[in-house]
Structure formats: structure tokens, C-alpha cells
Simulated assay, not measured.
Amino acid sequence: MFGRLRAWSGRHPRITDALWLTPFLLVSLLNVWTVGVVDLVAWGAAKLGVWGFAGLSLLLFVPLFWLRERPVVVFAVISLTSFVQWLAGVPTLFFNVSVLVAMYGVASRRPLRWAVGAGLVVELGLFLVFGRVPQGLDLRAFATASAFAIAIWTAGIYANTRRRYLEGLEERAERAERERDQQARLAAAAERARIARELHDVVAHNVSVIIVQADGAGYAIDSDPEQARRAMQAVSATGRRALAEMRRMVGVLRADGVQEEYAPQPSLSQLDGLVAQVRESGLPVELRVSGVSRELPEGEQLTVYRIVQEALTNTLKHGGPDSRATVEMEYGVRELLLRVTDDGRGAATPEREGGHGLVGMRERVALFGGSVEARPVPGGGFQVVARLPIGDAGTGRAA
């Protein structure tokens, strides 16, 4: 119950302040009524005037609404107001208890040095008030008021200590939760890496079986058609098992709690659209294709698209104004040469730690046995050069 009340007060601080200040205001008004409105206004008007007396009451009460945000400022305003009241010879009102309320706010929300300062100011104020009686300092009244003030000051210190302790517990709990989640993510990543290695072994084994069975069927198709038929049935069954196993393991690798959006992956046919999109973003781009174009596997097409996309994105981010870019694709007999060049100031931009663009390019190209180079261009600009094996050269990929 108290936890819910504390949470509610944290969400509605203004309403909470109004609720606990309302009884204080009612008691103060009751004090005014007990003294007598006519007599109170009479001596208040004699000292400060009617409007001055009303202004004094407001200055002692209204600042408490900002005690939560600025306790030191509120305490300074109320203390200064009370000091001016003492200088003017205006008798003490119940509204002057706001000095103790403000002192509690400082002690409960600010470091100890501010709390000690506020306590000393209150003690000085009590000494001034009880030292102005006709017979001199009223020690009994001063001691009683000081004990009351010290009790309030101590309660503020305790509330400050408890709040800091609870905040420390919450911070440690949040840190422990973050560390637990991080450990869980690391464990999941390690398990997925193990599954990926198993996937490699499973696929390699099944593909080897398929190749052996297919070769056997090829040799036996003329001499023993029945054996060839059984071999092809084994190829079909093994292929289905390999595909099912791969789908299951890839599904585990993708199980990261985020809904996967399945959409066709980009290919070379969408490269013109990518270049046009970059042009619309403000970067002039020229696309050049040379050599005899070849039909590339979908994986290599996606790799080329992503490399161009990453290189042009880096030019947009780091090339600066008035920069231009050129994308060149050169089909060779056994190799596709991809070159993305710009004339911006990206070469002068310091490399940032934690960037994954070039790393991702290298990983994609290394999958097909190719290479990537990223370097500044003499005279200004930056260049990304990728080489991808095609045709028969592309079959010897890294396993």
C-alpha cells in the first residue's frame, strides 16, 4: 500500500505538495482567526499596512510549493522574509513555521553541508525571536523551540539518508538486471555460434552424401537402372532432410525476439533504383557497367548491392557538400570488379571506433572468396574496391 502511495506521489508531485500544505494553511488561518482578525489587521496595518501584512503571509507560504524542486532557494526566500519581519517588529505568526518546513526540505533533499547551514540559520532566527522579550533571552522557550527544530532537522537528515539508500538499492538492482540480460544475450550468442558450426557440419555431410549418390546414379543409370533409381531416391530424401535441418537451425539463429519481416532481398536489377534514391538525397552518382554481364547467384547479387549501398551511404555522411560519386562494375572472365569512388572529404574524416560498415563488407565478400579494399584516393576522396569471383571461380568458396 505504501509503495503504491509513494509511486502515485512520484507521478503527481504538485498534487502531493498541495495535499500536505493544505493542513498547514488551514492551521495558519485558524491561528489568524483565534488571534482575532480585527486586532491582527490593526497591529499588522500599523507595522506594514494591510497589504504589507497580506504580502508577508503570502511570502511565507507560497514558496513552499517549489520546495521539492528548489529547496535552498525556497529556504532563502522564507528566511529572508522572516528576518525582514523581525526587523520591522512584526510579531511571529503561525506562518513562520514555514521556516522549519523549508529547513526540512533542505535537509531531506540536499547534501549535509546545506542541511547544517539551514539548521544554523534557523537557530540564529530562534535566538533573535526569543531574545527580544522585555526581560531578555527566554531560555526555556528558546530551548523548547530549538529542540523542536533539531527534531525536524534530524528527521530531514534521516529522510535524505533513506532516500539515497533506496536509490542506491534501485540502481544496484537495475545494474544487476542489465548484467543478467547481457549474460543471457552472450549465452544466446555463444549457443547460436555453436548451432552455426553444427549447421555447417550437417549441410556439408548431407551435400557430400548427395554428391556420392548422384555420382553412383550417373554410373549405374545404363547398367543398373534400378540401382540408379534407388540412388536418386536417396538423393531426394537426403536433400529434403538437409533442407529441413537447415530451416530449423536458421530459425533458431534468427530467434531474437523480433518479428522478422520477410521480403525479397535486393538484387542487381534494383541497383539503378538505389542510385536514383541516392541522387534524390543530394549526392550526384554515376553508374558505369562494362564487360559482358553475367547472371550471378542471388547471394553475390545481394553482396554487390549491399557494398554499393554502404559505400554511397558513407559518402553521404562523410563526403561533405558538393561531393560526387561513381559506381563502376566491370565483368571479367572469372571476376567481377566493383569500384565505388567519391571526391569528397571522407578521407580526412577520422575513423570512428565501433564502425561496422567495412567489416560487414569484408565478411560478405569473404563468404564468396573475394576481397575488399577501402582507401583514400590521392588528391582527395575515398574509394572502395571489391573483387568477387564469378563463374567457375566462384564455386571454390570459403567453407
Rank of each mutant, 00 (worst) to 15 (best):
A42L: 11
S82T: 12
V97P: 07
H318T: 02
L128K: 09
P264I: 08
L30S: 15
Q135D: 12
R230N: 02
R362P: 01
V74Q: 02
A217N: 01
Y262Q: 15
S281W: 04
W51Y: 14
F65N: 06
A196W: 08
P111A: 00
E123V: 13
A184S: 15
W86Q: 15
V32W: 13
Q301L: 04
E351L: 11
V32T: 11
I211F: 12
G10T: 06
D343Q: 02
R375Q: 11
E310P: 02
R68S: 05
V275L: 04
L126A: 05
L21I: 10
S290Y: 05
Y158Q: 11
S108C: 00
V77Q: 04
G391S: 12
R364M: 14
E170S: 11
F130W: 01
T326S: 05
I211N: 14
P23I: 00
E260D: 10
W33N: 12
G89N: 05
V27G: 12
V377E: 09
A189F: 11
L302I: 03
A231I: 06
D181S: 14
L21D: 10
P266D: 01
V202M: 06
G89C: 03
L21V: 08
Q265Y: 04
Y165K: 14
V62T: 07
L67I: 06
L128F: 13
R180N: 13
F142G: 00
P71C: 05
A141P: 03
M232I: 09
Y219F: 08
I221Y: 02
I390L: 13
G273P: 00
L336D: 02
A231R: 07
A190E: 15
S98Q: 08
K47E: 13
M1W: 13
F368P: 00
A155Q: 06
G55I: 10
S269G: 11
A141V: 06
G299Q: 05
L29D: 11
G291V: 07
V258E: 15
H356Y: 10
I157Y: 09
D215F: 11
R254N: 15
R68M: 03
F61C: 09
R178C: 06
V90M: 08
S28T: 15
P376I: 10
Q265L: 13
E226A: 14
F65T: 13
V333C: 07
L93A: 03
S293D: 10
N96L: 03
N31K: 09
P350M: 10
D181C: 10
L139A: 04
F2V: 14
D222I: 10
Q277N: 01
F148C: 10
V212G: 08
S371T: 03
L287Q: 04
V365A: 01
V99P: 06
E69M: 10
R364D: 11
A374W: 09
V73Q: 11
V212T: 12
R162G: 03
G239T: 09
L56P: 04
A173R: 15
R197S: 10
R113S: 06
L87C: 02
G319N: 00
T161Y: 13
Y104P: 01
G168V: 07
D392L: 14
R254W: 12
A7Y: 09
Q183L: 15
V377L: 10
G391C: 12
T92L: 07
R180W: 14
Q309I: 05
E198V: 00
Q270M: 09
